[in-house]
């Protein structure tokens, strides 16, 4: 079945890397199909950044995401910008420390959204001691609440993508994220 994922946040949060890792996990390690795309714009650190991943056990024709099944918001700006596209009864994962939750209460109710709070940035800073791995923490949370890729595939894709010498910290980050939800 086709599943569409959109992850959005600030430039510098590793949003694109999170998309690449999910796509890699699906296509190289779970052996299903995946297409990953990303927004190209003036995305210097701090600007808006977005990645999209389509995962399917069938051939993927249309490669873009229009109505995601899963939206992951790592900034308030991203949440407000992309929330409306989320499918009814879709999964919304937010970093509660980076969004103003009051503003989405009505939307969540109205569309029967499954809302999950994953404090990825705080977990990365407090538990791992590395703010930079917030994206990997978030992957852990995504894998826990969705079934788009397996735990094993996600771990393999992380190991395949991160710089040498950082493997342990990144796997710890993934596991900390997985334990959040």
């Amino acid at each position: 079945m086709r599943k569409e994922v959109r992850i959005a946040g600030f430039g510098g949060q590793g949003v694109l890397m999170a998309g690449i890792i999910l796509g890699k996990a699906a296509s190289l390690f779970d052996n299903i199909n995946a297409v990953q795309t990303q927004s190209y714009g003036p995305e210097a650190r701090g600007g808006a950044s977005r990645t999209e991943v389509v995962v399917s056990d069938e051939e993927i024709d249309y490669p873009k995401v229009s109505h995601p099944d899963i939206l992951v918001a790592m900034s308030h700006e991203a949440l407000i910008k992309y929330m409306d596209d989320l499918k009814d009864e879709g999964i919304l994962i937010i970093d509660p420390d980076l969004v103003v939750e009051e503003e989405i209460v009505d939307f969540v109710k109205e569309h029967n959204i499954n809302l999950y709070r994953a404090p990825a940035t705080n977990t990365a800073t407090e538990k791992i001691g590395l703010r930079i791995v917030a994206n990997i923490v978030m992957i852990g949370a995504i894998v826990k609440v969705t079934d788009i890729v397996s735990v094993e595939a996600a771990k393999q894709a992380i190991l395949d993508s991160v710089p040498k010498g950082t493997e342990d910290k990144n796997i710890q980050a993934f596991e900390a994220g997985y334990a959040l939800l």
Binding site: I20, S27, N33, A34, Q36, T37, Y40, P63
Partner: peptide, 10 residues
């Protein structure tokens, strides 16, 4: 084109 240039697949 940009779509095929900038998409990742297996």
């Amino acid at each position: 084109d940009e779509v095929v240039g900038h998409m990742r697949e297996k």
